[in-house]
Each structure stands twice: as structure tokens, then as C-alpha cells.
Amino acid sequence: MRAMTDHRLLLVHAHPDDECINNGATMARYVDEGIGVTLVTCTAGEMGEVLVPDLSHLAYDDKGGLGDHRRGELDDAMAVLGVTDHRFLGGFGRFHDSGMAWHEDGHAIAAETLPDNAFWTTDIIEAADELVAIIREVRPQVLVTYDQFGGYGHPDHIQAHRVAMYASQLAAAPSYRLDLGEPHDVAKIYWTAMSESRMRESLRKLRESGDTETFKGMEPDDKLPPFVTPDELISAKVDGSTTVQRKMDALAKHATQVDTSGHFFSGAESGHSWWSDEYYRLVKGTAGPVDADGFEADLFAGL
């Protein structure tokens, strides 16, 4: 591990496990480089699906308790990645997982019935103020969150995007809520992305291997869903070849949410190849030097 630097990365995610899927390799890389990594998780994921039969009683519509269990899974996952600063927005249990439903077009939408204190319907200033205090305390140069659609439409992902973007503006305002700390302007903000060319290449390998179930309904030469980003909109690609094993080990700690016998971990396109490189869209700040493929190789490039 390199000596600690004065660089700091802040990631804002909706539920436990989102951080590993989207940014696990990136987080592990920056921990190794001595960069401060802070994860803010907005809900405990109380409404998530339970994939472990022996733990099915934890489901929200059964006995409940999934949020407490996922809190432990997140602790274990962060220990694998080496991230020591991870927090729940406003403290554990402040904002509740909103749940979701599926639209006929194949993306997530808000469910008809929402739990009490659902993050999706919380007052955005109330949630943003909690994040303003963290931004002003941690003082990150780089912030990572979802795009405006939350990747695939999950209401909590969309709300996390809104809260992160609004809080970053409020945190920089010299006259706003000085009781929340000294103003701080985040230099670079990125949205997570899935490369279109990478997705098409991976789908082609899956179909050629005879796998017709993984990402069923998606074909390599057809129109792709909104969570896939055209390469021309992508600014950065973090090479996770040296940290992907830790990413996968950390993801496996989210056992109630991830099937370790599924495509994330095995098959023609296992997680080790599918998810090793992590892509980002720069939405605030100036891009640094790019590599031969036209991408920044470092989220802190140019700082």
C-alpha cells in the first residue's frame, strides 16, 4: 500500500451491494493507493429479495429483519475491500428502502404501495442536508453516484442521484447552513456507467457459448436497455484487473442478494471478466489526460 494521500473519494449508493456491483474494483484500487474512500449508503435495503432459502424469513413481507442482516453483509464486504469509512445516510434506519415494481418495458418503477419513511418520498432537502454535512467533513475531490435514471429506474437509485447532486451544490454554497460545516466544492462528479461496446461484446460471448438465459431478451446487435451507456458519453475507465478478485469476494458477502452460482461468478462471461473494468461519465469538472482508448484511467486525473 502506498502512503496516504490527500485525495478522497465519496460514493453515494442506494442499498448494500450496489457499491460492489458498480464500484468494487475502483474502491479496492484507491484503498491500495492510500486514497481516502468513503461510502454513503442511503437505505439498508429492507425490501430486497432474499436469495438464501434458509434466510427467507428475513423478507419484508415475512418476519422482517433483512435490513439488519444486510448491514452485517455490508460490514463484511467493506472489510474485504479495505474500506473503513462507510456510513448510512442520516444513520442506520433513517431512510427506508422504497421497494420497486417492474414496468412492462423492462425497467424498474416505484411500487404502488410504499413503506413508511420510504427514501423515494423523503423530503430532498432533509436527505441532502445529511449528505452536505458528510461532504463538508470528508471534503472529497471526487464524488460518484448514479445517473438521473438510477441505472435501471429503481426509485431509490434515482433519489440517491438527486440527493447527491443537490447536496454537492449546497455543500459548496458559501452561505448555506454553515452549522453543517465549512463549505466545500467537489471538483469532479461522475455517474456510473455500463459501456455499450463492452455489453455488446459480452452478450456476443454469452450467446456464442450457448447461454440464452443470462440477460434474457437482450441480444448483441439489438437495442439495449437504458442502463447501457454509449461509449461516446463515457469519460473514464478504471482498470480493475488487479482488484477484481477482491470485488467478487466482497460481492459474495452480500449473500442474500447475489447468487454465487450465477453469471456474476461463473460461465462464459463470469464477473471476473464482465465486471473487472468500471466505467464512468464525468458530469462536473474537467477531464484529465486520456489513454489510447480515449478514457481517463484515473478518476483523480487532472487534479
Rank of each mutant, 00 (worst) to 15 (best):
G210D: 10
G181H: 07
M194C: 06
E196A: 05
P230D: 14
Y190N: 03
A250R: 01
G210Y: 09
S195M: 03
V228E: 11
L206P: 04
K253V: 08
D211F: 09
R204Q: 14
T214I: 09
M199Y: 06
W191S: 05
H184N: 05
L251W: 03
R246N: 04
M199A: 13
D185C: 10
L206Q: 14
A250S: 13
T192E: 04
G210R: 08
D222F: 00
V238S: 11
V238I: 15
E219C: 01
R198H: 06
M218F: 06
P225C: 09
S235L: 10
E213N: 10
P230M: 15
K216M: 04
K205W: 07
D249T: 11
L203P: 09
D239N: 15
S235G: 15
R246I: 00
M218A: 09
E213F: 07
K216Y: 06
G181A: 06
D179Q: 06
T212Q: 05
A250C: 07
W191K: 01
F227G: 10
W191R: 04
D249V: 05
E201S: 13
D239G: 13
I234E: 13
F227P: 04
M218C: 07
E208S: 08
D239S: 12
W191Y: 10
A187N: 02
M248R: 02
V244H: 02
G181V: 02
Q245P: 00
I234K: 14
S235M: 13
M194A: 08
E219R: 08
E232Y: 15
T242I: 02
I189A: 10
A255M: 03
T256I: 08
G210Q: 09
R246E: 00
A252R: 08
M199D: 04
V244I: 15
A193W: 03
T229W: 12
A250W: 01
K237V: 14
S195C: 03
R204D: 08
A255P: 00
L233R: 15
T214L: 05
P226F: 13
G217C: 00
K188A: 05
A193D: 03
F215I: 02
I234F: 13
D211A: 10
R204P: 01
F227W: 15
R207E: 04
R246Q: 07
K247R: 14
I189T: 11
G240I: 15
K188H: 07
V186R: 06
V228I: 15
A193E: 01
E232V: 15
V228G: 12
E232F: 15
G181Y: 07
Y190E: 03
E182G: 00
E208I: 02
P225Q: 11
D222E: 10
G181N: 04
P226C: 10
K237W: 05
Y190I: 01
A187T: 09
F215N: 08
K247E: 09
L203S: 10
P220A: 02
H184K: 03
D221W: 02
M218W: 14
T256R: 05
G217M: 02
A187R: 14
E208R: 09
L251P: 08
L233F: 15
R207M: 04
T192G: 12
G210M: 10
F227Q: 07
M194H: 09
V244E: 01
F227N: 14
V228A: 12
E196L: 02
G240E: 07
F215T: 00
M248P: 11
T243C: 03
G210L: 11
D221S: 09
S241C: 08
V238T: 14
S197C: 04
G217V: 00
E213D: 13
A193I: 02
G210H: 10
